[in-house]
Structures are given as C-alpha cells and as structure tokens.
Design a binder for these strands. Sequence first.
DNA 1: GGTAGCACCAAAAGC
DNA 2: TGGTGCTACC
Length: 719
Amino acid sequence: MPVASPERYLAGLNSAQREAVLHTEGPLLVIAGAGSGKTRVLTHRVAHLITAVGVKPNEILAITFTNKAAGEMRERLTTMLGPVARAIWILTFHAACGRMLRSEAERLGYKSNFTIYDSQDQVRLVKQVLDDLDKDPKRFVPRGIHAQISKAKNQLVSPALYRERVASFYDQTVAEVYELYQKRLHASNAVDFDDMLMLTVEVLERFPEARKRWQNAFRYVLVDEYQDTNHAQYRLLQLLGEKHQNVCAVGDPDQSIYAFRGADIRNILEFERDFPDTRTIALEQNYRSTNAILEAANAVISCNSERKEKRLWSELGDGEPVRVVEVEDEHSEARYVAAQIAGLIDEAYAGSEIAVFYRMNAQSRVIEQVLRLQGVGYQVIGGPRFYERAEVKDVIAYLQVLDNPPDAVSLLRIANRPRRGIGDTTLARLVTYAEGRGISLYEALSHPQEAGLGTAAVKAVTGLANLFDSLRSAAQELEVPELIQAVYDRTGMIDAFEAERTIEARGRIENLEAFVDGAREYESSTEVSTLSGFLQEISLFSAQDELTGESNVTLMTIHNAKGLEYRAVFVVGVEEEIFPSSRSIEEQGIEEERRLFYVGLTRAQERLTLTHASSRLLWGRTNSNLPSRFLDELPDRHVERERLRASSWRNYGTPAQTRDIQPRVEHPSLETGDSVRHGTLGEGVIVRIEPGGLVTVRFASDGSERKLMLDYAPLEKIA
DNA sequence: GGTAGCACCAAAAGC
DNA sequence: TGGTGCTACC
C-alpha cells in the first residue's frame, strides 16, 4: 500500500508550493498561474493533512467544478494514500450540495429522493408555466426567462425577494413565472441545478442545527478554480468555513472566463477581505511552456486592469518563436493548419499532442473538412452530450417517473413517446383535472373518465397507466440494467426506432444500448445498487471525459481547453469581431475575452501558432475582419509574423490534390539547404520543407524568405 | 394527432 | 451557412 511520507512528498515541491501545503491553519488563498502545479498543491495539501496533521479523511471537503477534475484528484490521492482516499469528500459543488441536501431535504418539504432537472427540463417547465399564465411566448421567450431565473438563483434571490425588486414590466412577469415555476418544482419533488446550491445555502442559513452539523463535519475545505465561483457558491463556502476558518481557495483571476454563467471574479480578488488573516501565496513558476510562449501570454494579460499582478516564468528555455500567420480566408486557414499539423507529425509529434482552438464551435467545420481530406485523425470536443440526447433523456424520464411519480416534467415528456395516441389536448385536460383535485398528474392517469377524456383517449391513457403499473412492479424485482431493458421492451421504444430503418435511428438504438452498459457499470461499481442511486449519479454526470482520444488531433473551443495542455497549439480566427467576439466588444467584455485568449496561449508547451484571415464567410456572409487587437499586444521578442501568399494556397487540400495513399510525400529531389532558381525571384536557398509540398526559400537578392508551393512555383534545383 | 416545410436566428458551458 | 421550433395542412 502506498503511504506518503512528508519527506517524500515535500521534496518534489518548490518553495511556494511547499508553503501552500504546510500552511494548514486559517484561510489560505493560492493564486496559481497557468501550469504552475496547482493540482499538485491541492493533492499534496490533502495528503499532508491526513498523514502529518492527523485529520480524518471524512473531515476534508475538496470541491471542484467538474466531475473530471474531481475524478483526477481522487485518482492522484489514491495513488498517494491508498484506499483511505475513498473517504475524503472530493466532489463537485453540485454533488456536494446534493449530498447535504438529500439528508436535509425534509426541512424544506422535499423528499430525499428528489429528481434533479437539467437545463432542458428547466426550459420545458418555464414553457409550461408561461403557457398556464397565458403569457405571449414571443414577448417572453422561455429561454430568456429561464436565464433570468437561473441568474436570480445564482445570486440567492428567492421568488419573494425577486418580486420585491421588480423594476420593469418584464421583471414583473419573470417574478410571476419564477414563483409558479418554483411551486411546480416543489410539487414534482424536483430541484433544478441552481436550486442545489440555493437550497443548500437556505438550509444552512435557516436551520442552525443543520449549519452546526456541516460546519463541524468539515474541518478543512478546499476549493479549486475559485475564480469561477458565483455568489451562491461563495456564500456556501462562507457558511461551511465559518467555524474552523480553514478555507483554502485555489485559483487564477487571469483565467476567469465564466462571467457569462454567473462567475464573479471579485470572489477571488476580494478573498482576503472576506476571510480576515488570509495567507496569500502566488505560484508563478510554470512547468509547462517555453519562455517565448509565457512572454507572449504575460504581455497580453498585463493589458488588463482588473487583476492581481503576476508574472509567469519557466526554466524551459526560450523555445520556438510564437507564430502569427495571416491567411486569405477560412479555407486557406484550415489548409495551412492541416499542413502544419502534418509537418509536426513528421517531426514525431503524436496527434494527441496537438490541438486546434477556436472561439466558437461553428468554426470547427472547415477545419474538420480539410483534416478529413488530408487523412489526419481528429476528434472534436463539444457538441451534444450523451445524457442530453433525446432518446437517452426519454429512458431517463421513464426511470425518473418510476422512482419519483410526482415528477410531472418527466411524465409529460414521455407520456406520448413512443406515440400512443396521447396528444397535447389529452394531456392538457389531465393537467387541469389534476390541479383541480390537488393530485399529481401521475395519479390523474388512473381517472381518465373523470378528467373528461373521449373514448380513444381514455383507452390510451389507461394503457399508459397499466404500463407504469407493470414497470413499477418490475422495478421492485429487477436490477437497474434489467429494468431499463424492461422499459425498452414494454414501451416498444427500440421497436419504434427499428421501424424507422434510418441510419439516425440506428444510432439512437446504439445509444440506448450504451445506456444499459452504463447502468451495468454503475451496478458493478457500487455496493448497494438502487434506481435512486443510479439516477442521482447520472443526473450530475456529463461527458467531459470524452477527452481520452488516442492518437487524434483535438479540436475544441478555448473554453473547453481550460486546464489542458498540448505540445503544439493552433488558435484560429484571431480576428476582431470573432476573437474578441462582436458581443464582447459591444458589451465591454474585453477583459474577460483577453483572459480567454490568455487561457488559449498558456495551453501550449512548445509550439504556438495564431492565425487570422483577411476575409471569412460566417453565417452566409463574407466579412473582412481586422487582425485581433490581442495580436497587437504581443511583444516583438520571440514572435514571428508572416503572411501567406494567396496564390500558393488556392488549390491546396482540394480533392484533386489530395494524396490519399501517401499524404505526406516530400518532393523527392529537394532538401533543406539546396540551392534553387525561381523564374522571377532569382536564386535562393531552401530553408524549410514542409509536408503538403510547401517550401520556404531565402532569396539571395534581398535575403527575404518566401513560402512557396512546390507544385506551382517555377523552381528548379541548381548545383 | 402527426408531419412537412418554412421562417428565423446566430458565443462560450459546468452541474 | 445550418439547425431548430412553430404553423399550416393532411
């Protein structure tokens, strides 16, 4: 069994890191620059608390934002400490709140097996409520209203408080919707994602016994990515840390990029004010990138005024200069990036060590096209998540109704899926009837006649009620995977997809099968397998762990890239209106945009290339964008700027040119160092040959370097 | 009650 | 340009 000894684990740390590990008592703020070994500090600190300070594992609460981060931390601690690591509370904000809330749910009138609604469910519920209140859905867009409600909850604004603060007619409507929305959730024994935080805070604030219980439970609290916390999360930490004051926040204000979803950078900037006698430690030594890359990043971020001064440095040498390349349009940009990637792979970079970042998902398409054409393996991170797929959500909705029958949103979702003749009219009647009688929609299913339904509808609804009866008794006897199978069989979901006979339906069936596999995994990984337990687990799970790509080049938005690193990074579309985005320019969000750019730059270990196009087709329109202002903020040192000649690129990478079999053959007769003669430019020397038939020639006449396409340039070798 | 076709709109995304 | 959500029609 691996046991960490202080000598061993302290030896691998620099002095700032060591101090952060050893300063165990009282509030601690660790400003951790990109690549400065933040996770190392967190894990070592926990190990130190347990092995040297003698803290019990279950007295430590380590909070992250993502399941992935929590999983990684647990894994590393298991390596260091062995099985005791299992008892530490290493959880996401939501999972931690979920645990506390389940055991305190009764205080707020919920049952502990409450259902958790994701954002899709939330919007559906808002829609229903708007409908019931007879609001014009054009004036009051469900998504927009939901955003308001979510924002209010993040700020711990209850429906009552919201109503007090109403400042416009629109607000007035939101207040009405918010109130009814919250009542509906409660009636369904359901909470939404935002409630998990807000209600946990409410329990801790309103019930002193609960507050004492959890304050005593956690002697030490650690939070990762503190710069991304919103007000509710901030308040939660205050409450939990109030007694022991052993709150350790780790984060980097320069990497705060989630204001748009409620994160408040002031939480980290004002931590020292909020927790008196805070010790602050800055980690500035970077173990990831060359100095060329860090100097570029430092120069850009220093243009922000809302920050804590910090300067990253590394011992990894200057490295290759950062390259800024101007291309003609998004197609030549894609071809250029593809050619460069091919070159890196020739230089023995693995595909998985290379990434392409963009500001918005829509930019990935062109890049994907060219990479496919070039035969370069790639994976795109982002896009629809497994558990958000419609068919998967359908099964989950069935399971949720079985587990928690009052859950009306789930019941409405699957009442007519697959089609069984229960339309909107029928459902509306049932809903009205249920409300009139003060019963749940589920109970109303057993009284179709009383609800005033026609003969056909009565038959259909009775069929549904019977289906649920049969599934509920199945749920008593079967394990989760078998129960899911029973849902497939008795609802005819799979049959319905099979009848479609389309590729799309095939894919849906595969997803449903994968879902059963997921349930099997759950069953084997837990001691007591229950339906409730399974649902709780998956409702907080979401795929960010698709990042396991083998040898593939990775394509993703910069937001997705946070926390990751690659030997070579390309950032495309570094143009005004794109990056910074037009919205951020209008709304004065440039500082956050600059931080996002900074996050992108600091992902690179060795090579960093930034491209911008002089024109670009976006949303059916061609725009000419200026190079991004961020490019002007780069230093001259270690930065190389070049412009690709349009003509050399026009046809590169198009199907006729594609070398399918041997995509990267070099021109056989030329090597670096060869002398060549160009038809119009005269004599020169080859300084670089890149795959894709690209050569760089330094011309003797003026010493200038030009990038040329071998296939087109009038070049001949001279002796 | 189901579906085809059209109009509309457009960032980023964790749980 | 491409995906989505609603209206009009079968």
